[in-house]
Measured scan of single mutants.
Amino acid sequence: MASQGTKRSYEQMETDGERQNATEIRASVGKMIDGIGRFYIQMCTELKLSDYEGRLIQNSLTIERMVLSAFDERRNKYLEEHPSAGKDPKKTGGPIYKRVDRKWMRELVLYDKEEIRRIWRQANNGDDATAGLTHMMIWHSNLNDTTYQRTRALVRTGMDPRMCSLMQGSTLPRRSGAAGAAVKGVGTMVMELIRMIKRGINDRNFWRGENGRKTRSAYERMCNILKGKFQTAAQRAMMDQVRESRNPGNAEIEDLIFLARSALILRGSVAHKSCLPACVYGPAVASGYDFEKEGYSLVGIDPFKLLQNSQVYSLIRPNENPAHKSQLVWMACNSAAFEDLRVLSFIRGTKVSPRGKLSTRGVQIASNENMDAMESSTLELRSRYWAIRTRSGGNTNQQRASAGQISVQPAFSVQRNLPFDKPTIMAAFTGNTEGRTSDMRAEIIRMMEGAKPEEMSFQGRGVFELSDERAANPIVPSFDMSNEGSYFFGDNAEEYDN
C-alpha cells in the first residue's frame, strides 16, 4: 500500500510504541512475548500442572481467558453494579484439565481477579502490559475465525453469508486497541457500523446529549479505520460520505453494504499476525530463551520457528480426527482463516481442507461434555516452508469459486491468482447506482469489472525454506488448481455463540 510509510507498523501498534527502528520493534515485541511466557509459567505453578498438562491447549485457553477477564475493567465495573446470582464479580476462573488415573478430569478453578492481575503485572515488570493482553485477544479471535462461520451475524446486519472472507476479527472485544483495529476485516468494521446506525434509528437519543457526542466521535473513528483499509480513492470518498452524514440511517447502511461487497474484489488491507497460545510461549521462556534479547516478529519467520520446536497437546472428542484438529489450530496460529487453501497447503506441506470436510468441533470443551471418553493427542503445528504475512489485500483475480465463501483475504505475501467468483459478486451490483453516491458507485463498479483474471497478485513473492531466515531465496510455489480455494466452501461450520 502506498501510504505504508505514514502508518505505524503493526509491531508498533502491538507494543504501543512511538516510531521505533526494526531492532527496537523486535525487542519490544519480544518483551511482550516474554511477559506472556513468564505469566503462563507462574500460572502453571499456581495450578500445580504437570509439564504435559501445561502444554494442553484447553488449559492455555482457560488461563488466557482468566487474565483477560481480570483486566476487563468495563465488564468488571458492570458486574459490580449489576450483581447477578451466583456470579462473584471479583473472581474469575474456568475449567482446568488434569490427568488422573490414566483419565482426563475437569476441575473448575476460581481465583481472585486481583490475584491474577498481581501475577500478570509481576510477570511483566510491574506494568499492565496491555500489548500482551491484546495479543491474547487476537489469538482467540484468530481461533474463532478458523472455527466458526459468522453466517447468522452477517444475515442479521443485512449482509450476504458468502462475504465471510471479510469477517476477520469479528469476535475481537471493543477494547483491543490499535492492534485489534489493524486485524479487523472490512466486513467486521461494516458490521460494527451498521449495528451502531441501527441503534440510532431505533433509539432517538442515541446521537443526542453528552453521551451522543461520545457516540458520534466513536462512529467517526470507526469510519476512519474502515476508510484506511480501502485502497481505492472511490471507496475512500464513499467512506467520507458515510462519516460526514448528519443523521446516519438506511442510506448509510446501503452504502456500507455496497462497500463491503466491493471489497470482495477491490480488497481492503487487513493486517495478519501470528499470535500463538500462551502454552507455546511459556515452555520456550522456561527453556531459557530470551525473546527480548533475541527479538521477535509476528509477521516473519519467528512464529514458524517457534511452532517448529513446540509440543502442544489437545483434548480430542471420541469421533474427532486429531489431524483435522491440528489443521484448525495451525490455521489459527498463522492467522489464515480466509487465505486461499492452495497457498496454505503449499506452505504447510500437507493438504489443507475446507472447514466442512474437517471432523472436528471447536477447541474448547463445553462444561456439560462427558470427560470419560476424552483422549488427548499432539497437535501437528509444523510447516514445510515459511512466508511473510501481508497486510495488503493483493490485486484481484477471477477463479472458480464456491457456493460458500466467494473470495479470499490473503494472509501471506505469496504470488498467486486470487480466487473470487466474479459473476456471483457482480450480480449483486445491478441497477442500484442512484442517489448521492452514484458517481462513486459507478466508478467502483467500473474498477471491479476491469479486474483481470490473468493478473498475478504479489508478483514474484515466494515462500522460503525454514533454514532461509533472511528470506534470501524465494520459492514461487505451484498450486494444484483442481483443489478448492475457499475454506468455508459450501460450508456447515458451527455458528459462533458468545
Rank of each mutant, 00 (worst) to 15 (best):
Q58P: 09
S345M: 04
N309A: 14
E64M: 09
E375Q: 12
L344Y: 08
A286P: 03
S383K: 01
D112R: 11
K198D: 01
E53D: 13
D145L: 02
S402L: 02
K198L: 10
L259G: 13
E220V: 06
R436E: 09
L379Y: 09
T151R: 06
P283C: 10
V280M: 15
G362L: 01
R389Y: 03
W104P: 02
G37V: 13
V100I: 08
H82L: 03
L108F: 08
S245I: 06
E107T: 05
L193N: 13
F39Y: 12
I201Q: 04
F479M: 00
S141W: 06
T378L: 12
Q308G: 13
R441Y: 13
E375K: 13
S9N: 15
L143A: 03
E254I: 11
E454C: 14
E210R: 07
C164G: 04
E443R: 03
L276T: 04
F304Y: 08
F258V: 07
Q405H: 01
G86R: 12
Q398N: 04
E192W: 09
V242L: 06
R400I: 09
K293M: 08
E220D: 15
E107N: 13
L49H: 03
V109L: 11
E465I: 01
F71T: 06
Y313N: 09
I138A: 08
A366K: 03
M238P: 01
A233K: 04
M163H: 02
T92W: 07
I316A: 04
Y289S: 11
V242I: 13
G485A: 10
A22Y: 00
K90S: 09
G132A: 13
L266P: 00
S297R: 03
I36E: 07
G37F: 09
K422C: 09
G209F: 09
S9Y: 08
P354I: 06
K98P: 03
Q399V: 13
G212M: 13
W207K: 01
G86L: 13
K325V: 03
I96E: 05
S3M: 12
V285G: 05
V280F: 07
M136K: 01
E434G: 06
Q241G: 03
E469M: 05
I388N: 04
Y40M: 06
A129V: 13
I225F: 12
I57E: 02
M448Y: 00
T62V: 06
T215P: 02
Q405E: 05
R152K: 14
N142G: 07
C279Q: 05
A411E: 06
S467F: 12
T378N: 07
G268W: 10
L256K: 01
N397H: 08
S297E: 04
F258Y: 12
G431H: 14
D240P: 00
I116E: 05
A428T: 15
L47A: 04
G126F: 03
A366G: 14
R213M: 13
N321S: 10
T360H: 08
M1F: 11
R384C: 13
F230T: 12
D101V: 11
S376E: 01
N417K: 13
P83D: 00
R342K: 13
R38Y: 05
G94H: 08
G288Q: 10
Q149E: 05
M189K: 04
K229G: 08
M447E: 08
L306G: 02
A278S: 12
N247W: 02
G485R: 15
N142F: 09
Q58G: 06
T360L: 11
L108W: 02
Y496Q: 01
E46A: 06
I25R: 13
S345A: 08
E294Y: 02
S376F: 06
T130S: 08
E18H: 13
V186F: 13
I41K: 01
D302Q: 15
K184W: 07
C223M: 13
E294C: 13
E73P: 00
G249T: 04
A129L: 10
P283A: 15
A472E: 12
I194W: 05
F429C: 13
N417I: 14
Y296Q: 07
L61E: 10
Q58W: 08
D34M: 13
Q364Y: 05
L307C: 14
K422W: 00
K184I: 06
L328H: 11
A22W: 01
L381S: 03
G94E: 11
P474E: 14
F429H: 02
F412M: 15
G393Q: 05
R195V: 03
C333G: 14
K227A: 08
K227E: 12
L341H: 03
G37W: 11
N498E: 00
K273V: 04
E11H: 08
G228F: 06
K452Y: 11
V299M: 14
T360F: 08
M137Y: 06
K77I: 13
P83C: 13
G209Y: 13
L193P: 03
G431T: 07
G268M: 07
F304A: 14
R156W: 05
S176D: 04
F489H: 12
A427L: 14
W104Y: 09
E252W: 09
Q399N: 00
R121H: 12
L256W: 02
P83L: 02
A70E: 09
I257G: 07
N202H: 14
I63V: 14
V186K: 08
A323K: 05
C279S: 08
R152M: 03
P303C: 13
I116R: 02
E339F: 03
A153M: 06
Q459V: 02
T62L: 04
A411N: 00
T62I: 02
M447D: 02
N319Y: 00
P354N: 11
M447R: 13
P277K: 06
R221V: 03
K87M: 11
G17Q: 14
T171L: 06
M13Q: 01
S287T: 14
A251V: 14
N205D: 09
S407N: 13
S245R: 02
P477I: 10
F420I: 12
V352A: 11
I63N: 02
M222W: 07
A451Y: 15
D160L: 02
E210S: 08
Q12D: 08
K31C: 12
N395G: 10
I63M: 14
W104L: 05
M189S: 08
K452R: 14
L166K: 01
R106A: 08
S367F: 06
Q398Y: 12
P354V: 09
A428R: 04
M136I: 15
E495V: 14
Q415L: 14
M189A: 08
Q398P: 02
Y40S: 03
I138F: 10
D497I: 12
D290E: 14
S50A: 15
K87H: 02
N247G: 12
P303W: 04
F489I: 06
K351A: 06
R175I: 01
N492F: 12
K113G: 00
H272V: 01
A179V: 10
D34Q: 10
N202W: 14
R208A: 03
R75T: 10
V109G: 05
F346D: 02
E455L: 13
N144Y: 06
N334E: 06
N309G: 14
S165N: 15
M191L: 15
E46Q: 07
V352G: 03
G94K: 10
G393A: 15
A182I: 02
M1A: 11
I225M: 11
R470Y: 00
V109E: 09
R117P: 00
L306I: 14
S314M: 02
P89C: 15
K293P: 07
S478Y: 14
L68I: 15
E434I: 10
I138M: 13
G94W: 07
G349P: 09
R208P: 03
D468G: 03
A2I: 00
E14H: 00
I406L: 11
L307R: 05
P419N: 02
G362N: 08
E294P: 00
V363N: 04
R152D: 04
T171M: 14
M191I: 10
M374C: 15
M440W: 13
G490V: 04
R75I: 13
D88L: 01
S3E: 00
A218Q: 05
S377C: 09
P161I: 03
E494G: 03
Y296W: 08
E254A: 09
M239L: 12
S84W: 11
M159F: 01
D203P: 03
D372A: 06
T437L: 01
S345I: 11
E210V: 02
N76C: 09
A401L: 00
V155D: 10
R243H: 10
A428L: 01
A336M: 02
S274R: 04
